[in-house]
């Protein structure tokens, strides 16, 4: 357990008495690709908010690279090595694709150095390389706002990679994508998992199956079970939760 990159220890989050997360434990090893699923309201996004510092847990501790993240502001956590992709694609619409990526790869991210120094040749190469991964070279100078939904998703993913984080948190990367785009995204995430630790949150079961990896099921703010996709689908608890959830939704 000492080798874990990220460890959530007995995290609880309560919103005015409502427990969004309840005694949640989870640990990720370096280089791992982990999928997290769960019905609506299971606390998936809340749990990302806790890791990235947007939300302070009522109880428990988040330890990343041996250091507690509690009380660290969001931008410091990001610099410390955690990148987050949001549910709906969030890119800077009034900046070009290249400028979006330039902000991601810039180091250090302080006002004075941004004013006085230019991007280094290595950084430029990295930007070109990142655009190549998602085939956006031809759109380099277009405003990100003019990209299609799928392209924005990809741009946001490579912006994350550009930040060179140790851990990537990816929230519903295939929402609203076509089947073909979904497949490409799955391949992209799998290839990233080679040298990053990746945590993916998804609804789409087919997509999770394609990732061929460990799955954690969240239910009512708690880890219901962990295992491979096949194990998960046979688990009576999971079946009950999912069927129950669909009945409630209907």
């Amino acid at each position: 357990m000492t080798t874990a990159l990220l460890e959530l220890r007995q995290i609880s989050v309560s919103f005015d008495g409502f427990m969004a997360l309840r005694d949640l434990n989870l640990s990720l090893k370096p280089g791992e690709l982990r999928a997290v699923i769960g019905p609506n309201g299971a606390g998936k996004t809340t749990f990302l908010d806790v890791i990235t510092g947007k939300l302070r847990p009522t109880e428990g501790d988040v330890v990343f690279k041996g250091r507690s993240l509690l009380g660290m502001p969001e931008h410091r956590i990001a610099r410390f090595g955690i990148g987050r992709k949001f549910q709906s694609p969030r890119v800077f619409e009034n900046l070009s694709v290249r400028e979006n990526l330039a902000l991601a790869v810039s180091l250090p991210k302080r006002p004075l150095s941004l004013l006085t120094s230019d991007l280094t040749a290595t950084q430029r190469d990295r930007i070109d390389h990142l655009m190549e991964i998602v085939a956006l070279q031809q759109r380099a100078n277009q405003m990100a706002g003019s990209l299609s939904h799928g392209q924005k998703q990809w741009l946001e993913i490579v912006m994350l990679v550009g930040q060179a984080p140790d851990l990537l948190l990816v929230d519903e990367p295939v929402a609203g994508l076509t089947d073909e785009e979904t497949d490409l995204t799955a391949d992209l995430l799998k290839s990233l998992a080679d040298d990053h630790t990746v945590l993916v949150i998804e609804h789409d079961m087919e997509f999770i199956r394609r990732l061929e990896t460990q799955v954690t099921v969240l239910h009512q703010g708690h880890v219901l079970c962990e295992g491979s996709m096949d194990q998960i689908q046979r688990d009576p608890g999971v079946i009950e939760v999912y069927l129950g959830a669909t009945e409630e939704a209907a």
């Binding site: 990235t52 947007k54 502001p73 969001e74 931008h75 990001a78 610099r79 990148g83 987050r84 949001f86 969030r90 890119v91 800077f92 619409e93 009034n94 900046l95 400028e99 330039a102 902000l103 991601a104 810039s106 991210k109 006002p111 941004l114 004013l115 230019d118 991007l119 912006m159 930040q163």
Partner: peptide, 23 residues
């Protein structure tokens, strides 16, 4: 330059910029 890009990014989506490591 990039300083100006950061300003525009603040206008567009400030929380997102935080998660990119900027203050």
């Amino acid at each position: 330059g990039r300083f100006g890009d950061v300003l525009i990014a603040i206008r567009d989506d400030e929380p997102r910029l935080r998660f990119a490591g900027y203050n």
